[in-house]
Design a protein around this nucleic acid. Structure first.
Lengths: 132, 132
DNA sequence: GTTCATGCAAATCGTTTGCACAATG
DNA sequence: CATTGTGCAAACGATTTGCATGAAC
């Protein structure tokens, strides 16, 4: 509080609670547009801008994570543990990879490059179970 | 030719040759905007749309590669061998990582997931030599 | 003389912002 | 009541497209 010029005390909103529940209830890494359409079932008058604003807040609060995928819009997920993704080049779906994140990789890159490495992300490209 | 509805025979253009030379002559992974500004030294009247169109053609021809980086515009590079990237979280620069690409990883993910894996990409996040 | 390349302006797509009003604490 | 949440429309940045003209083959 001392160091933040403008402190925000978020108020509760059932719309945001609901949005969070939707993201937590899926593993499909939905886009803002998709979440907007789902949310309209409960909140018919909701605007897309409100969805974007609430997604940003939920990310800031640490409840969800934004996933940026080559050639696609922003996507969101509620899995907070680090993991890798596979993008299906046929249907565009995104799956979580049940593979241990290789912590060693970062130190190896530090040694080789002389850069400071904080983390890494891996995207696999291929065909998902349905499309292969 | 038989299977493409509309076949395109690209014509030579000194502007495009020049654009390619610029990308080949740097390892900074420039954006279209940056290339546009560089190209204007030789072609003062060039339009940004022309740069985008020619970059697309050069990618299609396999002379350059489009690099998509979290939170940044499209970037381009002329290194055609597979390699990993480090994004500096301080200055935003992108460096190539002199690390062997792990081909094994793809087959391991195939085994674990049951998906078909064609390739993977890794982005490291941290601080480049200058910023650390 | 076709077909491709170019410049310009307008269109598009995904995302953000400003504003007036409603809801929360 | 002070502050945040919401809907709507407008703004925005990056990229693409349409069209008329110029260059390449």
């Amino acid at each position: 509080m001392l160091y933040s010029y403008h402190h925000v005390n978020y108020k509760r909103s059932s719309l945001r609670d609901n949005l969070l529940a939707i993201v937590q209830g899926t593993n499909t890494h939905p886009t803002a547009q998709e979440l907007y359409e789902l949310l309209r079932n409960h909140y018919p008058g909701v605007g897309l801008a409100t969805v974007y604003r609430n997604l940003k807040i939920l990310v800031e609060q640490g409840f969800i994570v934004k996933v940026e995928i080559k050639g696609s819009s922003e996507r969101f997920e509620a899995r907070l543990d680090r993991h890798y993704h596979l993008i299906c080049e046929s249907c565009g779906s995104i799956s979580d990879i049940p593979l241990q994140v290789d912590q060693d990789l970062d130190s190896r890159v530090e040694e080789v490059t002389g850069c400071r490495v904080i983390k890494h992300e891996i995207q696999f490209f291929g065909l998902c179970k349905n499309c292969r």
